[in-house]
Simulated assay, not measured.
Amino acid sequence: MTEITSHTNHGKGRSCVITRRACFSSSHRYWLPELSDDDNASCFGNCALAPGHGHNYELIVSMAGELDSDGMVLNLSEVKHAIRQEVTNHLDFRFLNETWPEFDISTSEGCLPTTEALVRIIWNRLQPHLPIVSLRLYEQKSLWADYSGEDMNAYLTIQKHFAAAHRLAREELSPNENEVIYGKCARPHGHGHNYLVDITVKGAIDSRTGMICDLSALQKLVDDLVIEPFDHTFLNKDIPFFAKCVPTAENIALHIADRLVEPIKEIGATLHKVRLQESPNNAAEIYPNDSSCQNI
């Protein structure tokens, strides 16, 4: 009986972050009345086509607090109710441009319902009801936005893929010495991976377009500077940089970051993170402007 009693308040008062997932299906259109049809098409591409297009959105709500005597930060029933009442009831199976007043582009204060604008407005609606610390909104598996209450700043991530081979070995070392360091990865004919690369940019959300930067321009930069040059190559032999630099996941991620920092700055955003996943078990992350560990 004493042992049972001693665990009754296990964890009470200790800090914890919990997450809750919510999904909704919505459509939207990127079109501004002050632009001509040609200018809208130039700025937003196919996203400007009427009557719009849809997505299956996935929202991840992170909340922080202290455990109570029931072993919970929050009652999940209350969390579900708040998210449903403040977000999904408003957005599910709706045309986002016509849901909330923040997206009313007939007024000068209205902005387009981009992923990054949407996640910020969801924050504003949930924050009075839940102790949220961050939100992530997936528009699709390869595009998502993060927000943590930093005024107009948000994070936007695009995910790309390339297939490449490499060999991990240092020229000045013997085969045996390389094998000691790199194991099977030092074998002379190399091996391949299907790499996933996440490019995360940070910036202020434009009050009218709802964007951190031109998404099409960002995708083109990554395609032109990373995917096209790297895809279906033997990195050691086809990429001059890796003729002398061992193409570990860490070095590849760092080289990708070096390639992208300035071009991304030129389109109005800041490169926040490059994450390179080499396999389901291995990944490397580079933060060009901050060497400390970060969560986003």
Rank of each mutant, 00 (worst) to 15 (best):
Asn194Ile: 00
Glu266Asp: 15
Ala163Ser: 15
Ser108Cys: 00
Pro240Gln: 11
Arg187Asn: 13
Ser26Thr: 08
Asp223Gly: 01
Ser279Asp: 07
Leu118Phe: 05
Trp100Gly: 04
Lys237Trp: 01
Asn251Gly: 03
Ala249Pro: 01
Pro188Trp: 00
Leu215Val: 14
Thr200Trp: 06
Asp68Ser: 12
Leu225Gly: 01
Asn46Thr: 10
Phe24Leu: 07
Leu49Gln: 14
Leu271Gly: 07
Ser27Lys: 07
Asn282Pro: 02
Ile4Leu: 14
Ser279Val: 05
Ile83Asp: 07
Pro131Ser: 10
Val61Trp: 07
Leu135Glu: 05
Thr2Met: 01
Val226Ala: 08
Ser69Val: 00
Ser69Tyr: 01
Ile60Asp: 13
Tyr195Pro: 09
Arg136Leu: 06
Leu67Asp: 11
Asp38Phe: 04
Pro188Gln: 11
Asp224Trp: 01
Asp238Gly: 04
Asn40Tyr: 04
Ala48His: 13
Lys160Trp: 00
Ala41Gly: 11
Cys111Met: 13
Ala163Cys: 10
Val79Tyr: 11
Glu172Gln: 13
Ala269Asn: 11
Phe242Asn: 07
Gln140Ile: 00
Gln294Thr: 12
Val61Gln: 10
Ala269Gln: 13
Cys293Lys: 14
Ile60Thr: 12
Glu34Val: 02
Glu86Tyr: 03
His7Pro: 00
Gly192Asp: 04
Tyr138Asn: 15
Leu49Tyr: 04
Leu96Tyr: 07
Ile227Thr: 12
Ser148Asn: 14
Leu225Phe: 04
Met63Asp: 02
Pro288Asp: 07
Asn194Gln: 15
Asp206Pro: 02
Gly268Phe: 08
Lys273Leu: 07
Asp223Gln: 15
His232Ser: 08
Val197Pro: 05
Glu228Trp: 00
Leu276Ala: 02
Leu271Lys: 08
His53Arg: 12
Val226Leu: 10
Val87Ser: 09
Ala117Tyr: 01
Pro240Met: 09
Ala253Asn: 09
Glu116Phe: 04
Cys47Gln: 09
Asn176Asp: 12
Ser42Glu: 15
Val201Arg: 07
Ala204Thr: 12
Asp151Tyr: 03
Pro131Thr: 11
Ile252Gln: 08
Gly110Ser: 05
Thr200Val: 02
Val246Ala: 03
Ala164Gln: 08
Ile296Ala: 05
Lys141Thr: 08
Ile239Cys: 13
Leu118Tyr: 03
Val197Asp: 05
Ser207Tyr: 01
Arg14Phe: 08
Leu91Asn: 02
Asp70Glu: 12
Val73Trp: 13
Ser36Asp: 11
Ser36Pro: 10
Ala154Val: 03
Ala257Gly: 10
His189Asn: 14
Asp214Gln: 14
Met211Gln: 15
Met72Tyr: 12
Ala82His: 08
Asn97Pro: 06
Ala50Lys: 14
Asp151Asn: 13
Ile252Lys: 10
His191Trp: 03
Ser216Met: 10
Val261Asp: 08
Pro280Thr: 02
Glu102Cys: 08
Thr233Ser: 14
Val274Phe: 02
Glu262Asp: 14
Ser142His: 09
Leu135Lys: 07
Ile18Gln: 10
Val197Arg: 10
Thr19Asn: 15
Leu35Glu: 08
Ser142Glu: 14
Trp100His: 11
His166Arg: 15
Arg20Phe: 10
